[in-house]
Computed example of a mutant assay.
Amino acid sequence: MKKILVIVGPTAVGKTDISIDVAKALDTEIISCDSVQIYKRLDIGSAKPTIDEMQGVKHHLIDFVEPDQNYSVSEYRQDAQAVISKLHAQGKIPVITGGTGLYVNALLYEMHFGENASDETYRQSLESKAELEGNNAVHDLLKQVDLQASEKIHPNNIRRVIRALEINKVTGKNVGDFTLDPVRTKAYEVVLIGLTRERSKLYDRINRRVDLMLEAGLIEEVEKLKKSGLDDSFQSMQGIGYKEVLAYLNGLYDLDAMISLLKQNSRRYAKRQMTWFKRYEEIQWIDLETFSSKEAVVKTILSTI
Rank of each mutant, 00 (worst) to 15 (best):
207 N>I: 06
228 S>R: 12
230 L>E: 04
228 S>E: 13
232 D>V: 13
197 R>G: 00
230 L>S: 05
207 N>Q: 14
213 M>Q: 15
208 R>Q: 12
207 N>V: 11
197 R>Y: 00
195 L>G: 00
213 M>F: 10
215 E>Q: 15
202 L>W: 01
226 K>Y: 08
234 F>C: 02
220 E>G: 03
220 E>T: 09
205 R>M: 09
231 D>T: 14
231 D>G: 11
194 G>R: 00
206 I>Y: 04
197 R>S: 09
200 S>L: 09
229 G>A: 02
205 R>H: 10
215 E>W: 01
229 G>Y: 05
223 E>R: 10
228 S>N: 13
198 E>D: 12
197 R>A: 09
207 N>C: 12
196 T>K: 09
225 L>F: 00
213 M>S: 11
199 R>S: 15
210 V>P: 02
201 K>S: 08
231 D>L: 07
224 K>T: 13
222 V>C: 01
198 E>M: 06
216 A>C: 10
218 L>E: 06
207 N>E: 15
208 R>F: 11
220 E>C: 02
212 L>D: 15
196 T>A: 10
225 L>W: 01
218 L>Y: 04
223 E>N: 05
231 D>E: 05
196 T>Y: 05
224 K>Y: 10
224 K>R: 14
209 R>F: 08
234 F>Q: 01
197 R>L: 09
229 G>L: 00
202 L>T: 00
211 D>L: 01
230 L>A: 09
208 R>S: 14
228 S>D: 15
203 Y>M: 14
233 S>F: 10
212 L>G: 12
213 M>L: 13
206 I>V: 13
221 E>Q: 01
199 R>T: 15
223 E>F: 01
217 G>F: 08
207 N>Y: 12
223 E>L: 06
201 K>H: 06
205 R>V: 03
214 L>Y: 10
200 S>H: 13
225 L>S: 07
232 D>W: 12
206 I>C: 09
222 V>T: 01
208 R>I: 10
194 G>Y: 02
218 L>Q: 04
205 R>Y: 04
200 S>C: 07
196 T>E: 09
226 K>G: 01
217 G>E: 05
227 K>F: 08
204 D>L: 13
222 V>R: 00
198 E>W: 03
196 T>M: 10
212 L>T: 15
203 Y>H: 12
213 M>N: 15
213 M>W: 06
215 E>M: 10
209 R>G: 11
201 K>E: 07
232 D>Q: 15
194 G>P: 00
226 K>W: 05
201 K>L: 11
230 L>Y: 01
